[in-house]
Structure formats: C-alpha cells, structure tokens
Design a protein around this nucleic acid. Structure first.
Lengths: 235, 235
DNA sequence: AAGTGGTCTAGACCACTGA
DNA sequence: CAGTGGTCTAGACCACTTG
C-alpha cells in the first residue's frame, strides 16, 4: 500500500498526515519514536525527522524531547499573507500605478507612534504622507513615520519620485515587525481621498518595523473601499 | 569575530543574514555556492543548506538549482496569523466565553457559497448561524455552511452545546483553506447584535476549507467593533 | 552538458525534559 | 537520569535549470 521503493521525506509526511486525516491517530495521540517509524518506513531517522518537522511547522503535530510526537490537541490554523510592494500589487492587477507625495516633514512623534515603537520618549522623525493610485484612483493612503536616527539616508531621498515604501523595502532590511489589521469608518478626509461616502468602512493596516530593536518605520495604510486581504494555505 | 568553534546552522544563518543586513550583499547579489560557504565556515554543506533553507523560507533569499542563491530583489514580507478556536481566543483575554446557536438548517447553498467552494452547482448543506460571546457581549457573529456530503456526522452533533467551529476543528482536519479579510458597514441586524450604530465599520473574515478537493465548511465571521487582527514576525 | 541546490544514508553526539 | 528529538558530519546520488 505504501510506496515500495525508497522513501522520500514528502512521502513519509504524506503517510503520517494521512494517518491523522483518517483518524488512525487522533488529537493527543502519541506517535512511535522517529527511530521506530524509520524502521517501519525503511528509511533513516533523518528522513522521518524532516517529515515530522514539516508537520510540526504546519501546526499539525507537536514535538518534544523525551515527550515524543503527538497530534496537536487544537490544530492551529496559520494563515500567511504576503505583503508586496504596493506598486507591484497594483501592477499585478493590470492597473497603472502612480504615486503622489502629500508632504514629508520632520516633527516629533505623537504618542501613538511612541507606543508603536516602544520608545521611552517622543523623537524627531520624518513624517511622510502619500497616496498610491491605481488607474488614477486612490488605492492606499499612507501615513508613515521614519526614524531619522536609524535611517538618516532617507532625508536625501527624493520622495516625490520614489515612494518611501519602496525605498525602505529595497534599502533597509528589518529584523522584526509588527502587523495589525482593523476596520474604521471613513472620516471626511478619507471620504474625499477615496471619493466615497463618509462612514464608508475601510480596511486599515499598521506595520511597524525594527532592526535589532532600533526603530525603522511605522506606517498606517488606509486601503480603498472593497479591498480584500487574501491568504491561501495548504496544511 | 565569527564563532571559532563548530558552526551551528543558526550561527551560519545569522552570519549570512548579517551580511545582508549590513549590505555586504545587496538585493540581486549572488552568494558563493553552498560548498564554498561550508569550507569558509568550517562546517558541512548540509549545515549551510539548513541555514539557507531557513533564509529562503523567510523570503530573504531565493535559491535555484544551477542558478545559485541570491538575495531577493523584493524582499517578501510574510505576516502569519494564528487563527485559534474562538472560545480559546476569548478565554485567553480573561473573558468568559459563551455561545449561542441561532439556527441550524439544511438548505441549498446560495451562489456565493457555491463560488467559495468552486462547486459545479448548488448543493444541500447545513447552514449554521451562531454568536460567540465574551462576557455576555457579542464577540463574533458566525454564518457557516457545512457540507453534509463530506461531513455527514455533523447532523448528529448537538450544536446547541458545542459550536460547529470547535467540533470541526477537533474532528475534521482539512488539507487546504482559503482565508480573506475585509471591512463592511454594519447593517441593522449586525448593529443590533453588537449593540452599536448602523454603519459601524466591522472586520469580516471568510474561511473556506477543503479536504482533498471535497468541501468541508465555508464560514463568514463578523467581528465586534474594535477587533484587531494581530501578527508579529521575525525575519 | 554541466553546475548548483535538494535529498538521502549511516552514524555520532548533544540538549532538553518528563518520569 | 534516561528517553526522545535536534543537530552535525562525510559522502553519495539525484533533479532541476541555465548557459
């Protein structure tokens, strides 16, 4: 029934996964140790390890030294979103991308941004507000703070030409980020920007990035009406 | 400067990552082949492989046979959300979870659900509507369709006691899912449920799951005002 | 066709952590 | 402290994919 030839780790993963899917192993059940499975499948422990690691990364099983491998009690659903450069996102929909800088000014960070970064006190940072357009319609309105301590070069970039979004992604790798999504009613400003009614429900993303605990940027992006954030996954 | 002792794959990953962070290697640049790096670091190719795979999974580098390993041109940001069982989410906030079934009826799927599942034609499925409460306040309103072909046992479950959300997660593993997030204005029904104003912006999740191309469930979950979806990540 | 990453084996030792 | 998973080595062969 199982493959007669030499086992690949994907093959092993599938066999084990199927034993879970058809309830031969139920949540909480413990698997034989890797070595025994290796014997059963006619492969080395390394190969079983690779398969089990993949299942563990997928949130399907839990592994503990000495404790063995068990089917997770509460299988985790992990949804992964890939957040692209806004220009590419627009272009991939077949629309023409344009970008409009509203202003870029150095000023002290408001309390909200101090909290986002976890700073001790307000700092002077570069505040950039801009609009990303798709076929001349506002697509995303962006309000961004950039740490000029961590990224002094940003002051020399011509932000009327290149968006801070794109410049930062290309030139400033980060080591950690925080991302949140929520919903707001359009105020009069956003209603005007997106040419929609006041109170229109809009999706908002906030992303804050650091490099080694040094703040890089914190951005609040308001998306146009009807925006969907989409993830697809295989367990 | 680098570790003098035997290299661990995490150590190797950190060294390579730092070379990217400090711009020794820039987007598009090609790394020496694994074997050469292994020589340089005094470890085996397997260890370099493990480090590089980790970086590739993180969207930082791209690997191709024959093509070598390069720093990604457009570093991908992957934000991973863990979607828990609603009861656990509520309880982890220190609130008391309650659950209220509104109705569970078999009927034909509307066009929207046919499309979500990618069915050829409407089917009779179980439609379940319910409210998850936190401290007696509506937390999530759930409208769910469950395939009675794929999951006939659901008809025998007492849904006034156990939520379909929880039963399915515990008893029906899935192999694939689709997840999307968007924003809507509360209609009069939702305004009543959440005791808020009509037009209040609400966050909506839709999740559809399959097992081997067989539909399991498609759910639309409307969250209460102020709900934040949060992800945190390390690159 | 040749170069480079992907996987597998066989064996060893290490590092947690539960009994 | 003993059991089980985690990692590392040394070497081989395979599978893409690009020049």
């Amino acid at each position: 029934m199982t493959k007669p030839t030499r086992q690949s780790w994907k093959g092993v993963r599938e066999i084990i996964h199927n034993r879970i899917l058809n309830s031969a192993f139920r949540p909480g059940d413990k698997f034989p140790k890797d070595e025994d499975l290796a014997t059963e499948f006619g492969c080395t422990r390394t190969t079983v390890q690779r398969a089990m690691r993949s299942l563990a990364e997928g949130g399907i099983v839990e592994r503990k030294r000495k404790g063995g491998t068990r089917v997770r009690q509460d299988p985790i659903t992990r949804a992964t979103f890939e957040i692209p450069i806004t220009r590419k996102e627009v272009e991939s929909k077949g629309s023409v991308y344009r970008y409009q800088l509203i202003h870029a000014t150095e000023k002290n960070t408001p309390q909200k941004i101090v909290a986002n970064f976890g700073l001790a006190a307000p700092e002077k940072m570069l505040n950039v507000q801009c609009i990303h357009l798709a076929d001349s319609n506002a697509y995303i309105y962006e309000n961004r703070w950039i740490s000029t301590n961590t990224v002094p070069e940003i002051l020399k970039v011509d932000l009327t030409v290149e968006s801070a979004n794109e410049w930062l992604i290309r030139h400033r790798p980060y080591s950690r980020f925080d991302f949140r999504v929520y919903s707001i009613n359009a105020n009069s400003k956003y209603a005007r920007v997106f040419d929609t009614d006041e109170n229109q429900a809009l999706l908002v993303f906030e992303r804050t990035t650091w490099i080694e605990d040094k703040p890089i940027t914190s951005v609040k992006a308001i998306s146009s009406p009807g925006y969907h954030l989409i993830a697809r996954g295989i367990k």
